[in-house]
Design a protein around this nucleic acid. Sequence first.
DNA 1: CCTAGTTACGTACAGCGTACGTAGTGCGCT
DNA 2: AGCGCACTACGTACGCTGTACGTAACTAGG
Lengths: 237, 237
Amino acid sequence: MAGRAAVPEVIWARPERTGRGPKPAFTRADVAAAAVRIADAQGLDGVSMRHVAAELGCGTMSLYNYVPRKEDLYELMLDAIGAEHEMGEPSGDWRADMLRNAYETRAIMRRHPWVPRLMAGVYGFSPNTLRYLEHCLACLEPLEVPYSIKMELVALLNGVVTTYTANELATAERTRSMPWSEEEENAVRIAYLGSQVATGAYPRVAAAFMEASGPIDLEAVFERALQRVMDAFEPRT
Amino acid sequence: MAGRAAVPEVIWARPERTGRGPKPAFTRADVAAAAVRIADAQGLDGVSMRHVAAELGCGTMSLYNYVPRKEDLYELMLDAIGAEHEMGEPSGDWRADMLRNAYETRAIMRRHPWVPRLMAGVYGFSPNTLRYLEHCLACLEPLEVPYSIKMELVALLNGVVTTYTANELATAERTRSMPWSEEEENAVRIAYLGSQVATGAYPRVAAAFMEASGPIDLEAVFERALQRVMDAFEPRT
DNA sequence: CCTAGTTACGTACAGCGTACGTAGTGCGCT
DNA sequence: AGCGCACTACGTACGCTGTACGTAACTAGG
């Protein structure tokens, strides 16, 4: 592979090993794991080709033998994350199973707060993404609607999980490289919000904040959203 | 403003002009507009401090008088986009109004394909975001549920719009800097998907693709998702 | 009026992705 | 068997990034 390809390429379609030449020092999984380790420890901005190479213990440019562009490294990372889904045998209760899947996805994202930011830029199926989709369809076997509708349900649920968890994690991931804490930043933002609401320019927003007595139960909000989406797909009795 | 602040700061809380010193050559809106113009024309990666400064016709470092960090430039851009919502008088039919809002949001994102990627990393309310939230609550006036539930509905609808449109736009925004077209890349990805499905390892995914006769009607899928979410919030009769 | 706070901006630096060239290795083919 | 080529490894170098810092010009408040 002398130069970079002038034609689109999916990294998963490229064989990991062709047989010719000295055998690679690492597997694709090694590379992905190293990148994930760095992202977990230092945030997504710590994932540079140089750092990942150093983590693996090889020269920077050697990385390009495994990954043609940095973007493909991102795809490797997302796929590695996808392997963390448990995907056990479906129970026969599709709502329970999908709820479990959603909570698991959220747990994975909390373990790897950089995932939402990565998902916004990358599109396409990877091996583990496909496995997860297959698993979801297996869980939805008892639901008697066409596959097209099942796909829409999976997409909708994943979308809800992603946006909810992304909002929860955005500040955490961002303040990582800042000299202040997540709590300090949130306090400042809430203070601004309060000052704006106090101007009276947003009466209904103000009323909404008045109505909320204590702190919001994010857990309950999350689960309610999922249940509502699933309600909408329950076949009419 | 000698050095950078060691304490969190919301750009909207910082006054645009304090009165002392020579008056700035541009307004905050000028800066935002220049950045948006570049992002529209060259993609989000074209938005560098140097390019934006050049677009404005000033030195690079002068930009830092208007925007303490690049991230704040992003917030300016998102706020500028928020101003494109029409926010007319609510009709009294909350479903029609919210549907209209959703379609408008999608239209805005299509006009500015970099918006989804930016939304993944930035959190917090800006003046126009607040205006939009207030507008949504105004549209939801006829819906007789507590404000907390209305907020959840707004969040859920916005989430759906964002994830659906993001998926639609991800490839477009990414292939912008590539030597190949969006169609070519999609073809390669679909070819890979087909080859994987053909292995038989994903029987249900295969069945789902078999079932789909023609190309998917993305428009119908989008609208169905919105309707379903709104269904779930309709008070039980 | 003076001076402190602001705008403007050139220079400089560390870090980034990656193009390119070279050296060494070992499988596949003749 | 052995030639040749595809592959691995990696150092160097280039253009680009965000932004810290220093300096000069300017203007409103005391």
